[in-house]
Structure formats: C-alpha cells, structure tokens
C-alpha cells in the first residue's frame, strides 16, 4: 500500500525511512522469533533436535510425537483440563459478579453505593498482602480446592471501574424509556445495558480469561495435591524448573521437544483468541485509563 504523507510533512528522506523499516523488522523479529523457534523445536524430530544441540529454527522432519506424548493422559493433559475448567468457570463467575456490582454502582443513588465505591477504591491503594490473603484462603477452607484459583481473584478493580464507567455513559433516557415500558432492573440490565456493552464485555472477558489461564503461583501455595496443578504451575516445574517430565510416561522424543510442546500448548489458547478480541481491547483499555 502506498503511504500518503500529509502535504506539510513531505516524504522523509530515504535514510530515515530505511532506519524506520529496519527498526520495525528488528522489533517484530524480537517478539516473534523466540515463539517461532519454540514451535519449530516442539515439532522437530528427535534426531534434528539432538543434532542441533537442543533447538531448531527450521525443522527438516516434522513429527507430532512430542504432542502425542504429553497429551496422552499424563500430567500435562490433566493440567490443561484444570486450566481450561478454571478459566471457563472463573471467567463466567467473574463476569457475572463484576457486571452485577458495576451496574449497581453505576446507578445514581443506589443504597450504600458511595461508601461501597470508596471501600473498593481503597483496595487499589492497599492491595491485600500475600501472607494475609493466604490466611484468608486457609480460614475459608479453600485449601486444595479449585475455588482457591478463582474466588480470591473474582473481581478485578480495574475491570470493575471500566465497566462501571461504560454503564454510566449509556444515555439515561434509554433506561428511563425501558422503565416506563415496565422493565424491572434486571430486564433493563439484560435487554438494554448488556447488548449495548458487547465490546467492553468482550475486553473484560479477555482480561479475566487470560489472567485465569496464566495463574500459576497460587497453586503452589494453596495446593498440597500436585495433581490439581494448572498448566502454568506444571510449566514452571518441568520447563523453567528443569524437572524431568519423563517420569510421567515412556518418553521417546527429545526432552527439549516435549518441553517446548508444553510451552506451545500453554500459549496456544491465548494466541487463538487474541485476534478475535484484538479490535476491542485498545478501546477497552482507553476507557479505563484516560477517563477524565
């Protein structure tokens, strides 16, 4: 595509344009190349990987052996199911609770609305510490329960404020009209407010889903039972922690391929939903960040 520069700007000199092009290519490669070699290594045959010293940029013989092994019902398969379940259920719960609270707080004069808003904003200033939160999880009996990966992170204050701000921006006349037509609060929320908020709801869902999928640390302190670990925690153990995955099953592929296949599977869902939601998220971030 031919770029058109504004008349006053004129076309930049060839040196400057070349420098910009080089900078852009380098930046894109810095992000994409590591991901590429991870995928390539996970798909390469054991001979290729071993011959090249543990990694491959361009696999000559493809094999899905590494994936077949880790998806064979072992630790990784289980962890993927745990993460998937926690992500789906967690995102749904978070969305319902955040929408409920944001909607109530967006209505003027709701009973207790202002003190509640101040209480919530204060948590922004003073987030719960790791040890006190641990004590709460322990006291509420969430230990070794998947709920420990969901309930302590049910509502994100940033997402709440974004949603509330968006709900407030919906013209009051619309809600008034619904009320005159006899709609109760829930009907108004369901039939008027939520359909208007699809874009911002998509962004908030994405943020929640990514956060649930990526959560790994909490499983280390809240779970004694390692079979309940989500994929991030398993990834830490076997890839960054250097533990051996081969205790799990009879491994025939190169250990590097297996490790990188775990990385790929942990990244894949994010990369898959990313393009779908991308057109929304910039808007969502800015609603929250530069709201004057």
């Amino acid at each position: 595509m031919r770029a058109t520069y504004p008349a006053w700007q004129g076309k930049p000199g060839p040196g400057l344009r070349l420098a910009k092009a080089v900078a852009l290519v380098v930046i894109v490669l810095l992000v994409l190349f590591p991901l590429w070699t991870v995928v390539a290594t996970s798909l390469a045959s054991p001979q290729d990987v071993i011959a090249n010293g543990g990694w491959v940029v361009w696999p000559e013989r493809f094999t899905l052996g590494a994936y077949a092994e880790i998806l064979d019902g072992g630790v990784v398969t289980r962890a993927l199911l745990v993460s998937g379940g926690v992500t789906v259920i967690g995102t749904a719960l978070s969305l319902v609770c955040t929408v409920g609270l944001a909607y109530a707080l967006s209505r003027p004069h709701v009973y207790g609305g202002r003190p509640m808003l101040l209480l919530i904003l204060f948590t922004f200033l003073f987030p719960p510490g790791m040890i006190p939160l641990f004590l709460v999880v322990r006291t509420t009996g969430l230990f070794d329960s998947y709920a420990a990966l969901v309930l302590p992170f049910l509502i994100n204050v940033f997402n709440l404020i974004v949603l509330r701000g968006f709900f407030q921006s919906i013209p009051a006349e619309l809600l008034e009209a619904a009320r005159i037509d006899g709609a109760g609060e829930l009907t108004t929320l369901w039939r008027i407010v939520l359909p208007l908020s699809k874009a911002v709801l998509a962004v908030v869902s994405l943020f929640y889903a990514v956060a649930y999928w990526n959560r790994f640390f909490e499983a280390i302190i809240y779970f004694n039972d390692q079979t309940k670990w989500p994929i991030g925690t398993v990834l830490r153990q076997y890839v960054t922690g250097g533990a051996d995955l081969s205790g799990d099953s009879t491994v025939t592929s190169a250990p590097q391929s297996t490790q990188m296949a775990v990385v790929v599977l942990a990244v894949a869902p994010i990369v898959c939903i990313y393009p779908l939601l991308q057109r929304y998220f910039v808007k969502g971030v800015l609603t929250g960040a530069v709201k004057a």
Partner: peptide, 15 residues
C-alpha cells in the same frame, strides 16, 4: 440492585 451487587460486595469484604 442490592441482590445483584451482593456477591461482589461479599468478595471485597472477605478477600
């Protein structure tokens, strides 16, 4: 509205 916001309020109070 109070019922709708209750789970969120409980979350902040507890956690």
């Amino acid at each position: 509205l109070l019922v709708v916001m209750a789970p969120g309020v409980l979350y902040f109070l507890i956690f």
